[in-house]
Design a binder for these strands. Structure first.
Length: 929
RNA sequence: GCCGGGAUGGCGGAGCGGUGAUCGCGGCGGUUUUAGAAACCGCUUCCCGCAGGGGAGACGCUGGUUCGAGUCCAGCUCCCGGCACCA
């Protein structure tokens, strides 16, 4: 017997693939292209299960498509800028570049050990100059297109570290390093104008082969809403505030205005007034509030009057101006008109501050009253207290009021979006420098294209306080490109979402020197046909990438508008972990006693619950351990065959053992030819060919639909059927045909094993990776074979059921096939039921036949029995007559002969047994003695 | 809080509105084996039955639609993803 040694086989084939440049592809107009891509990873220290799953899915698809004859582009690269490298620099004095490269090398080694079929020549990483120079180039181009803006925005600020913090570094309102209270600080920042593309981003969603849930999330995120701009003049300031509302119908009910506390206008207005002190205190309070708590509709409304009044442009009425913590600065104008009678938040605010409430909508069938209201009336109704609009339906009034405002020059209909412009500047070292120079005379001046790239300085100090770029004089001091005077280089770097917004196009032509990629290559390879990644990227990454694709299309770099034609969001990998029900928490390593199975804190026993694999819990499994112990094919097969790609997957140690056995068994079955072949074909050969083709058809469909789990399990089952076939005796021709088909079907999921079978057992030249996916031989899928197979299954089940009850060893199993007339009667019952007839009608019709009439009550009883369980009857194998079933029964004898002693076949007509009457066509009476 | 998902035996997970839930794990019994491993054959919701059957109960909870609901609808509970500086 050939022993399965995955380590040897896998190393051997990985080398052969590399030597043959098996997966290196170039533009080839004679072939149809297919671009498979996984979301490129952040190079953390090690590959984790999520990565293994992601790449196993992609590689399986890439190999399948390659075998279908496509020219498959399947690249890999690394999202290498980002916070962790900088954190490592601050905490362990690591050099971010060296640290990142070490991680890349390690991950790449792991990926290669797993045998993924990437075209490694195309590897890119965002930290190399030939990549990030194009980030800068794009930025300058976007600037020329009017897509770049500088605006003020708030950032998390640690006053002690004097540094900007990521949301992640500012959890629960305190700094990750020094625990100081984090506050908000306003900074002038760089933005990309993604809102300009909001409508297109929305409209194109319908054409994408993406999960509906992702499309819905993006749609909601863009948040297009049609409404009205209403301009409110602020008394004594000369300022007019364009407030957005979807409820212009309630304009007569406005009794105050509310501004976001961080709106800079507010600060200006209160300056030097008696309100300033309280305002500063409230602002500080709001800026240190938890960002989710603030959005919570149920949390306490905070606010104050700021001494100003606004004029309602419709009524001319003056209303007080407040600030409120629930107003979002980034949405609309950072101010809302407040209608307490018809908006719950405004209602609560008005109650708290004793502001009047005015009803302007009355429901149709009852009347609401200000004194009795306990909450806002937010439903529809008829307008009241609304001047000329009284009596109008409130929905209709929206348009009329908008039009009136437009006529008055005080606003009008408009469209508003929830999506905000993309803030891309970061006050950090480890990113792409933004190519601008600030000159006191000329302002913000773009770095000339010839001076690109702007490189990051080496040997900077990572103290954790301030941005290292700011404290590096060599980097900061620059000459103004315009006037040549002394100037200051921009020290902000770009968001890493910039890197990941176009890397999939750089893979198409990573060697391009004078453009980010050549148009010809783009028109051949682009866009990505199948993109695979986690659902956590459903909104931001995927939306930014779509925006980038549209903006670069408008730059003339390519002609298509969407980067990813189809998207697959893989499920998470979970593992069970101790959970203490008393403390209501998952217990990380060290917080539970594994021997006693108790929680260390409360001493009570824990239960095991499924949790996301995470470092903090310590319930991770290193894929490398799996590969070392079982081999890459087993690791991949496990992760693919346990759950379909979209579903979440539960890791289990038993599961991997089981798959390991399946793989070993497959290897042994496929590598070990029978000692001798039989000469002539018989039923077993036809049955095997039937199975192979049925499975091939199903597996092809499953792969096409990305139901990889189903596809692989079907192949694994087929291997078992193949072994049975070989055991009963095989002809050389059928053996070879089937072995070849099985090896090909295994190639996408267990590629090393398949190559070994291809070369050693089948003696094929060339790689199975380059072989063609087999075609289904429809002629082999004979209905009579299907009937026989189903028959064997059903009859076998029945025999088992009987034996279970009898609880004795049988000496003889007799099958009695139903009488010929029953076949005719069964047909009549099925047809009759389809036409909606009842059993009586069917019996009457049958009795028209003299032969049936002679049998009388027997026929009636039979029909009634069938009609009771029509679904069960429908499922039985279908035979045209007794002769056909006798053949199937004969084959049952062949197939199950080993399991049971002395199988006999008889007909109901010829049998003297009383039980013979139970026979139904397709379900013989079984008599065991 | 808001937006988007999810909940199915001891476990992982399948399940076009069609009648106890594919497949696998674990467990139990058996065959084989010097032993172990592996492989193979059964059983695995409960009760009753020496003939393929009968009864009870059951896909998070509560209702609804339907001849029929794990599947559709409404409300609730819990879990997960995202919420714009983690990637």
């Amino acid at each position: 017997m050939v022993e399965y040694k995955p380590q040897e086989i896998e190393a051997k084939w990985q080398k052969k693939w590399a030597d043959a440049k098996a997966f290196e592809v170039d533009v080839d107009p004679s072939k149809k292209k297919y671009y498979v891509l996984e979301m490129y990873p952040y190079p953390s220290a090690k590959l984790h299960m999520g990565h293994l799953r992601n790449y196993s899915i992609g590689d399986c698809l890439a190999r399948f498509k390659r075998m279908q004859g496509y020219n498959v582009l399947y690249p890999m690269g690394y999202d290498a800028f980002g916070l962790p490298a900088e954190n490592a620099a601050i905490q362990h004095n690591a050099d971010p570049e060296k640290w990142t490269w070490e991680n890349i090398e390690h991950i790449k080694w792991q990926q290669q050990r797993l045998g993924f079929s990437y075209d490694w020549r195309r590897q890119i990483q965002s930290i190399t100059e030939d990549y990030f120079v194009w980030n800068q180039w794009f930025f300058l181009k976007f600037n020329e297109m009017g897509l770049v803006a500088r605006e003020d925005a708030y950032v998390n600020w640690c006053p002690d570290c004097k540094t900007v913090l990521a949301n992640e570094q500012a959890q629960s309102g305190t700094c990750w390093r020094c625990n100081s209270q984090v506050t908000q600080k306003i900074l002038t920042q760089w933005f990309l104008n993604i809102r300009k593309y909001a409508d297109e981003l929305l409209d194109c969603l319908k054409d994408l082969e993406w999960p509906e849930k992702v499309k819905t999330m993006q749609q909601n995120w863009i948040g297009r809403s049609e409404g009205t701009i209403i301009k409110f003049e602020i008394v004594g300031t000369g300022e007019e505030i364009p407030v957005f509302t979807t409820r212009a119908d309630t304009i007569y009910g406005v009794t105050f205005m509310t501004f976001a506390p961080e709106n800079p206008l507010v600060e200006k207005w209160v300056k030097g007034t008696k309100y300033e002190k309280d305002y500063q205190a409230l602002l500080h309070e709001v800026l240190t509030e938890d960002r989710f708590e603030r959005m919570n509709a149920e949390s306490e409304k905070k606010g104050m009057f700021i001494g100003k009044e606004a004029i309602n442009p419709v009524t001319g009425e003056k209303v007080p101006v407040y600030i409120g913590n629930f107003v979002i600065y980034e949405y609309g104008a950072g101010a809302v008109m407040a209608v307490p009678a018809h908006d719950q938040r405004d209602f609560e605010f008005a109650k708290k501050f004793g502001i009047p409430i005015r009803i302007v909508i009355q429901p149709e069938d009852y009347e609401i009253n200000v004194d009795k209201m306990s909450r806002a009336y937010e439903e529809d109704g008829k307008l009241v207290n609304s001047g000329e609009f009284d009596g109008m339906g409130n929905r209709d009034a929206i348009q009329s009021i908008s039009e009136m405002l437009a006529k008055k020059g005080k606003g009008g209909p408009t469209v508003n979006y929830k999506i905000r412009n993309w803030l891309i500047s970061r006050q950090r070292y480890w990113g792409t420098p933004i190519p601008f120079i600030h000159c006191a005379k000329c302002g913000a001046v773009p770095v000339p294209y010839d001076d690109l790239p702007v490189r990051l300085p080496k040997n900077v100090k990572f103290t954790g306080t301030a941005n290292p770029l700011e404290t590096d004089p060599e980097f900061v001091n620059a000459k103004c490109p315009k006037c040549g005077g002394k100037a200051r280089r921009e020290t902000d770097t770009m968001d890493t979402f910039v890197d990941s917004s176009w890397y999939f196009f750089r893979f198409i032509d990573p060697w391009s020197k004078d453009a980010p990629y050549s148009k010809d290559a783009m028109e051949y390879w682009g866009p990505v046909d199948q993109y695979i990644g986690g659902i956590e990227h459903a909104i931001m990454h995927l939306l930014y990438a779509r925006f980038w694709t549209k903006a670069t299309r408008d730059l003339g770099l390519h002609s298509f508008s969407e980067p990813f034609a189809a998207l697959l969001t893989q499920g998470m990998v979970n593992k069970e972990n101790p959970f203490c029900e008393a403390c209501n928490v998952f217990l990380p390593i060290g917080k539970y006693d594994e021997g006693k199975k108790t929680c260390i804190k409360c001493g009570k026993p824990y239960v095991l619950k499924s949790a996301k694999m995470s470092k903090s819990l310590g319930n991770t499994v290193d894929p490398q351990e799996m590969v070392d112990k079982y081999g890459a094919d087993t690791a991949r097969f496990f992760i693919l065959a346990t759950a379909n790609p979209e579903k979440q997957l539960e890791w289990s140690d038993e599961g991997i053992d089981a798959v390991s056995r399946v793989i070993k068994r497959a290897f042994n079955t496929l590598m070990e030819p029978p000692a001798a072949f039989k000469k002539a074909k018989d039923f077993y050969d036809e049955l095997m060919l039937y199975h192979v083709n049925v499975v091939l058809k199903a597996v092809t469909e499953s792969f096409e639909m990305m139901e990889i789990r189903d596809a692989l399990n079907k192949v694994a089952n087929l291997v078992d059927l193949f072994r049975d076939y070989v055991d009963t005796g095989a002809t050389k021709k059928v053996y070879t045909t089937c072995l070849e088909a099985i090896a090909l079907m295994l190639a996408p999921g267990a590629p090393h094993l398949a190559e070994e079978v291809w070369e050693v057992a089948l003696k094929k030249k060339g790689l199975i990776a380059h072989a063609r996916w087999p075609a289904v031989d429809e002629a082999a899928i004979k209905p009579e074979i299907k009937n026989t197979w189903d028959y064997d299954t059903y009859v076998g089940e029945d025999v088992q059921n009987i034996l279970k009850i009898l609880q004795k060893a049988p000496s003889k199993v007799a099958l009695v096939v139903a009488a010929e007339w029953k076949f005719q009667a069964l047909g009549a019952v099925i047809d009759g039921l389809k036409e909606g007839k009842n059993a009586g009608d069917v019996i009457k019709k049958l009795m028209g036949d003299p032969a049936m009439k002679k049998l009388g009550g027997k026929v009636a009883g039979f029909v009634n029995k069938l009609a009771k369980d029509p679904w069960g009857t429908e499922k039985l194998p279908k035979f045209t007559g007794q002769a056909e079933e006798l053949v199937a029964a004969g084959n049952f004898k062949l197939l199950s002969g080993k399991k049971y002693p002395a199988i006999e076949v008889a007909t109901e007509e010829a049998s003297s047994e009383k039980k013979a009457e139970q026979a139904i066509p397709g379900r013989p009476a079984i008599i065991i003695s």
